[in-house]
């Protein structure tokens, strides 16, 4: 043990892997990774048992909107990471700006998603194909809604100047989760949009 008499108090405020909140977030992400992996496995299982995929009568999804949307989502994560780096250096302006941009991009994603899905002539009751794609999309979209909402809360905190280079745990875990929601979308994108074309 390296603590001696006269050493200063251990810090009560910690970031990253020293903080239990950070580990709690990692736990949540681990759980969600298992859930999303399960959904992907279900998708491919259903594809395996069906002779044609997507089934007759259901058009293959168009690639344009979802691809743009994927890029939008990735950009939002980049904005979050930039903001997170900024606060570590004490740059409040970039912090606020980054969070705002991320929220705006998240909203763009939601709008485009709405446009995309209202253009489909099938829903979850049409076929198991519809069931799994709508479920995956619905589940993931709920995540985007939740990070955007949480982003608004964190933005309020940022606007009130509550974050400091050594005190920004809320922002740190928020970024962590945001990046997760974006990164997990990439395999979902490949599953739903690219894999049927291969």
């Amino acid at each position: 043990m390296s603590v001696r008499v006269g050493t200063p108090m251990l810090p009560v405020y910690t970031l990253g892997p020293k903080s239990v909140v950070w580990w709690g977030m990692i736990g949540l992400i681990a759980i969600e990774i298992v859930v999303f992996s399960g959904l992907i496995a279900m998708y491919f299982w259903l594809r395996l048992v069906n002779p044609s995929w997507p089934p007759e009568g259901i058009d293959t999804k168009g690639l344009l909107i979802p691809t743009i949307n994927t890029l939008v989502l990735i950009a939002s994560a980049v904005a979050m990471v930039v903001a997170k780096r900024a606060i570590v250096r004490g740059n409040q302006r970039v912090l606020k700006l980054g969070q705002m941009v991320a929220i705006a991009l998240g909203m763009v994603f939601l709008v485009l998603k709405y446009i995309e899905y209202s253009g489909y002539g099938y829903d979850w009751t049409t076929h198991a194909y519809g069931s799994i794609t709508w479920t995956i999309t619905g589940f993931h979209t709920a995540h985007v809604i939740s990070v955007v909402t949480k982003g608004l809360v964190v933005l309020t905190m940022a606007l009130r100047g509550m974050f400091r280079p050594d005190r920004h745990l809320a922002f740190e875990v928020s970024t962590l989760y945001w990046v997760f929601v974006v990164v997990i979308w990439i395999p979902l994108y490949f599953t739903m949009y690219i894999s049927p074309r291969l």
């Binding site: 759980i31 959904l39 069906n50 076929h127 198991a128 069931s131």
Partner: peptide, 29 residues
């Protein structure tokens, strides 16, 4: 546990909103 959560939710969806995860007639299994 997430797997059984998924299984239960899928059963719930099949029952409550009319998805077809496990309905062989509609491409489920």
């Amino acid at each position: 546990m997430p797997a059984v959560l998924l299984a239960t939710v899928a059963v719930g969806l099949d029952r409550m909103v009319g998805t077809h995860f496990f309905n062989a007639a509609m491409g489920g299994d």
